Amino acid sequence: MSLRLSTVILPVHRWHEGGRERWRRAEELGFHAAYTYDHLSWRTFRDGPWFGALPALTAAATATERLRLGTLVSSPNFRHPVTLAKELISLDDISGGRITLGIGAGGNGFDATALGQEPWTPRERADRFGEFLRLLDRLLTEAAVSHTGTHYSADEARNIPGCVQRPRLPFAVAATGPRGLKLAARHGQAWVTTGDPKLYEEGTPEQSVEALRGQVERLGKSCADTGRDVAELDKVLLTGFTPDRNTLLGSVDAFVDFAGRHQELGFTEIVIHWPIPDSDFATDQAVFEKIATEAPGQLA
C-alpha cells in the first residue's frame, strides 16, 4: 500500500485572514487529508488566537471538494457523546462524507480544567474514554439511543438520518496503552500515535523507531485478541513529537527517508504540521509544499 501524506492545520488564523486559503491550498497540494486540533486552547498558543475545531472544519468543508477532513484529536475533556454525535452527523453531511473523527482519552492540559473541574486521574480518563467511545459509536449508528452509564447517559437521543458514510464516519483512535489499543482494535478504522513521549527531549531517532515498532506490535496483539485483522486499520503517525522533529521537514530527501523508515513499520499515513512562523512548527513554506507534491511519488 502506498503511504498517504496528510497535514494538520492549527485553528489559529481568522477565516478571512488566511484561514480559508490554507485549507484550499492543502487540497491543491494533493494532501490526502487535512486535520485540526480539537482543544479549547493549547500549549504555547494559549494566549493567542485559537478557534473551535468543528466550526473550522465545517467552513473547510464548504471551501474544499475532495480533501478529507477531521480532528486530531477530539477527547472527552470538554465534550459529551450526545452533542458531539449530532455535530459530527451534521459535519459529515455538509462535507459530503469526508469526515474522520480522530479521538483519544485527552490529557491534563488546559482542556482538563477549563470547565472548572479537577483534572481526571489517568485511570478516570481511561474509564471515561472507554464509555465515551462505546456510546458515541452507538449514537452514530443507531437512530435512537438510550443509555445510563457511570459517566455518560443518553435518553432517547435521536440521530436521524445518521451519517453519510455508512455505517458511520470512521474513527481514528489515538492510543498507546493496553486499554486504548483494545478500543482502537474494537472501534477504530484507524489508529493514531505521536510516538513515545518519553523520547521527546533526549531520545534518538533509532530509539523512536523501535518504540513505534513496539506500539505497532501491541496493536496487532490487541486486534488478534478481539478477533480482528490488524491490516484492516490504517496506522497514522502524527509527526512533530519524535526526536527527529526538527530535521524531517528540512528537505524532500530528509522527509522521504523519515517516511520510508516508518512505512516499513506498517504506517499507512503520515501527518505533518502546516508551517506556523515563530512556533515549534516553523518550517520553510516552500520546502513544505515541495514535500507535499514530490514525496508521495517517491513513497508509492
Results as ranks from 00 to 15, higher is better:
A190P: 07
T204R: 11
R213E: 02
G203F: 05
E210W: 06
A211C: 06
T193M: 06
A184P: 07
L181I: 11
A190N: 03
T194N: 12
L183G: 03
K182F: 00
L183R: 00
Q189R: 14
R213D: 09
R213V: 02
L181V: 09
A185G: 13
R213H: 08
V192E: 06
L199N: 04
G203V: 05
G180Q: 11
L183S: 13
W191N: 04
T193V: 10
T204D: 12
G180H: 09
Y200S: 05
Q207V: 09
G180A: 15
G188Q: 05
E210D: 14
Q207Y: 08
L183Y: 14
A184G: 10
G195Q: 03
A211F: 08
E202G: 12
S208M: 13
T193F: 05
Q189H: 12
R179K: 14
Q207M: 03
K182W: 12
L181S: 10
L199R: 06
P205V: 03
Y200H: 07
E202K: 00
W191M: 03
D196K: 08
A184N: 08
E202I: 00
H187D: 12
S208D: 15
Y200T: 02
Y200L: 13
P178L: 10
L212A: 11
P205M: 01
D196G: 07
Q189N: 12
E201L: 03
Q189L: 12
E206H: 04
V192A: 10
A211M: 04
W191A: 00
